[in-house]
Design a binder for these strands. Structure first.
Lengths: 254, 254
DNA sequence: TCACACCCTCAGAATCATCTCAGCGCCGTT
DNA sequence: AACGGCGCTGAGATGATTCTGAGGGTGTGA
């Protein structure tokens, strides 16, 4: 296991100016909750985890989060019921307005989710794409926090002359549109969210490929290679730079 | 935690210069009407709720709203009939022009949609995404306030040389009228509402087919195929482009 | 009742992203 | 300068995804 990069320098302030949003993840499967926790922390959220409905309700009362990611199938009190109780908490505005992102398996979906009826504001079907989950989390937080009038899917990610719009899934470099595959797109998105920060190989693997990648593989290198070919202009210095023994950075100057 | 913005300013004044728009929600399911009420009020609308058709008609006569969100399946007088009576109210301009956003479950829709002609200005399938609903509400209000004088149900959706009128359910391409089935129509409408935006397979399924589609099916692909055959001109680049691993986009250029 | 339109399912075929592999070259170190 | 490790790249293999035509079921209107 590659050790964490020793350097303390370059802590990335991911979203400049944005206050740390607090997210409660409720799932009894450690692999999922762990994955979410790490990922969301990486994105700059503060994260708590509960592994059953009762604990979740306790934690919510104790310290209401800005958003809850709630699995439908959890012990003690199931997700549907948790949502219902929260919505029923007429007393507290903070509670009854708490955005809930429901996490469900596909089979369950059919029976149970009559959409948002139960009190969820949005839901996502397992297995989900990490990028999609992030997008929904952002959308829910945006909706609840700022009732700002600027709608439309959030501001595009940019770096140097690269622009990426998650919603429309378009990427441009110097105004010229670029086609990317899913892997390339996710990888680039990860870099764009953490510019100038060295991302370790394993971090990238986890962000883009998810938990399940045992064994050795050099997929990452291959995709990095393709991505470079897609976005880098000849003559220009590399944007995605290799940090030997550690990982890669998105950086402008040499 | 991002606390609620301290300022009360920035209420979404959807229709510039217009006073707070007044919306009547008609639905007998408290979970849905409650959800809508809260959400819409949060957005800065004034909201009334009726839980059956008769009450709705009374309230409309009493105080005509700027927009009605109308569930199809409601007690006393069903949504269809409510819409019909409103449209039939020859006497009052305010009534016959009242924008109606119909709320339906997909199963119901399939049967009845053919009779929708002219009754509703738009419809949305349960379960809907909140953002989507908001967008349509805004669109309808904008429309109705914009063209005060000209009757005609709503501005058509357009893209490139495609034109679609929801109300009359007509579609033209380059001036030439095109026949579409219900599924094709819904699918195209979804694209037209989100041009240049990649829509995931599951989003499309949900919007067009509704909740009840577990299991694997390739209906979407089939309908996409048919739709392409209907609207795409030979020699021209595709308008509906597939984005492998993600979904489809309505996009003009390559 | 018949004919027709529509919608879904299915299976085969085509297409394409992704992954694996193996060889090569660069880089830092000895 | 030689060496070893690490990263890069091109060439397939592989499997997933998407497309298409055909067929059956169902409901509607004549």
């Amino acid at each position: 296991m590659q050790s964490v990069p020793p350097t303390t320098a370059g802590m990335a302030t991911t979203t400049p100016g944005a206050a740390l949003a607090h997210i409660l993840v409720v799932d009894d499967e450690p692999s999922i909750s762990g994955f979410l926790r790490r990922g969301l922390i990486f994105e700059g959220y503060s994260v708590d985890v509960a592994d059953n409905g009762r604990a979740a309700l306790d934690m919510i009362l104790d310290d209401p989060p800005d958003l809850m990611i709630l699995d439908l199938m959890i012990p003690e009190i199931d997700g549907m019921e948790v949502a219902r109780r929260i919505r029923a908490a007429e007393g507290s505005d903070a509670l009854s307005r708490l955005p809930i992102l429901m996490l469900t398996a596909r089979d369950t979906l059919a029976d149970r989710i009559s959409g948002l009826d139960g009190g969820a504001d949005d839901y996502i079907v397992k297995p989900f794409e990490y990028e999609e989950l992030l997008a929904r989390v952002r959308a829910l937080l945006r909706r609840s926090s700022a009732q700002d009038t600027s709608h439309q899917a959030g501001a595009p990610l940019t770096f140097a002359d690269i622009t990426m719009e998650i919603g429309s899934r378009t990427v441009t470099r110097a105004g010229r549109s670029i086609e990317l595959t899913v892997r390339e797109f996710d990888l680039l998105a990860t870099f764009l969210r953490h510019p100038n920060q060295v991302l370790t190989r394993s971090t990238l693997m986890q962000r883009v490929w998810g938990e399940d990648f045992f064994g050795e593989s050099n997929v990452l290198e291959v995709v990095i290679g393709n991505l470079r070919r897609s976005i880098e202009l000849d003559g220009m210095p590399r944007l995605i730079q290799t940090v030997r023994g550690v990982g890669y950075v998105l950086r402008q100057n040499a």
